[in-house]
Design a binder for these strands. Structure first.
Lengths: 248, 248
DNA sequence: CGGGAAGTTGAAGAGCGTCAAAAGTAGTGG
DNA sequence: CCACTACTTTTGACGCTCTTCAACTTCCCG
């Protein structure tokens, strides 16, 4: 068990009862892999699922372990990362509601995943999930499209890591959070960062000091405002986009 | 037309007659997207295809253009890359026989593709290809698996770009070429590089000078031998892997 | 053999990393 | 409510890796 404790004191976005065995009312479904399942198949899909609560800092999967399950995030946020033998770390993505863990697995998990906030996931045993998908081309199609989108995003990230300066990387990162937030229907004027400077550094191929200095530099330019270290306001998006070099 | 000239003087790995409208004898099929098509559907698949010859340096697709076609490489090699507005370039991949161009497209091409050597591709009009795939779950599945593999490779590349030193990047790059060559059934003792130092630099997030210095350093350590600038011999793979930090 | 491109090598400089310390923030308990 | 602690973030000084700029060499094709 990864999340054993009952923690009534912490606000949970989705209670156990909301998720368990009811895909119909799932708030994440529209943008998740499950959007590929027809309405009358949702109950069968629900039969495959075990909901799982994670507390901030809990590890959901570990790189190298046998890949026995796949997951959909129904609430909260996670980071996925890979480690080099000497401990250097690269965060390859931040995941949010509706995101799927399981596109890039082979026999073993190819990355680790850890909860950034209290998080709820739907857990599928892989064989059952795969055979469900195999019988449903629309689901297969949905997974392919999600993988394609991930791939395009990964290529953008390669441009960032290979060719952008520290300030451009931070600007691009903030801009991508703005876009994501607006896709989810919320305003993009302010952003709540659920990850630490360390996570951001490992995502952008920098150190925490350089990330911090880049935040300060952007603030000095009047492009962002920091209410606290985790709440970023963006008064003028065009100026942020100009520094991010647009193309990402 | 991108490749209009007839160029009998250049050695072609596959002549026009070999490819056109015969998927059965296609040397690339086993490892291409077309492996998802059943044997008795190959003729129908062949009906969708226009073979296309590219000379070294020809541009097949350009980032931002309307994505009207998808492609399978049947012979030769290509690079795909993205540009920043000021001209900085990131090569996001090198493609070889059996590789597919079209996984990560939306309405427009998200990257440019250029032939590194004389190259042959199979060209599919996108609507016809998509509807062919839509009727064939095995094909859909094959594409999903290819996208998943690409995604895993992209994440490895993020580790390289974000966290490895110049020497480790070059070692990882050479090692990946060794592995690819062995997957294709050839010996991995020597590698013929079809890309320039400039292409390698833009792939590894470095400058040509740093790439050149890293090659020289690896040669100085006795880990590689350079018969010419494009022919690399690797007497001891374990030592190369140790420098590449294994995990890629 | 000659000219142009690609690759290699050298010297100097910039950007980011490293090390260190201060400032801010959150949680705990008296 | 405030003090204490532990952690995260910020800021500063310095150093190192990689980039930049430049010259030289090698390779290739006419």
């Amino acid at each position: 068990m990864l999340a054993t404790a009952t923690h009534e004191s912490r606000p949970m976005h989705v209670t156990r009862a909301d998720v368990s065995h009811n895909c119909r009312s799932c708030p994440a479904r529209a943008r998740s892999a499950c959007a590929g399942a027809a309405a009358d198949e949702l109950d069968r899909l629900a039969g495959l699922v075990t909901p799982q609560q994670l507390m901030q800092g809990d590890t959901l999967i570990e790189e190298g372990d046998e890949a026995t399950h796949v997951f959909t995030i129904t609430a909260g946020s996670m980071k996925i990362y890979k480690l080099l033998p000497d401990g250097r770390r690269q965060v390859t993505g931040f995941l949010f509601q509706g995101d799927f863990l399981g596109l890039a697995f082979n026999d073993c998990y190819t990355y680790s995943a850890e909860a950034l906030t209290d998080t709820t996931v739907c857990r599928f045993a892989r064989p059952a999930f795969e055979s469900f998908v195999e019988d449903r081309p629309a689901m297969e199609r949905r997974l392919r499209i999600m993988a394609s989108n991930e791939l395009a995003a990964a290529q953008d990230q390669m441009v960032l890591l290979g060719r952008k300066t520290a300030q451009e990387r931070v600007a691009s990162f903030l801009l991508s959070l703005v876009y994501r937030q607006e896709r989810l229907g919320r305003e993009g004027k302010a952003i709540r960062l659920t990850m630490t400077r360390n996570d951001i550094a490992d995502y952008l191929g920098l150190t925490i000091e350089t990330v911090s200095r880049s935040f300060s530099a952007l603030r000095g330019l009047g492009i962002i405002e920091l209410d606290s270290s985790t709440l970023v306001r963006i008064p003028n998006r065009a100026r942020l986009a100009a520094i991010a070099e647009i193309a990402s």
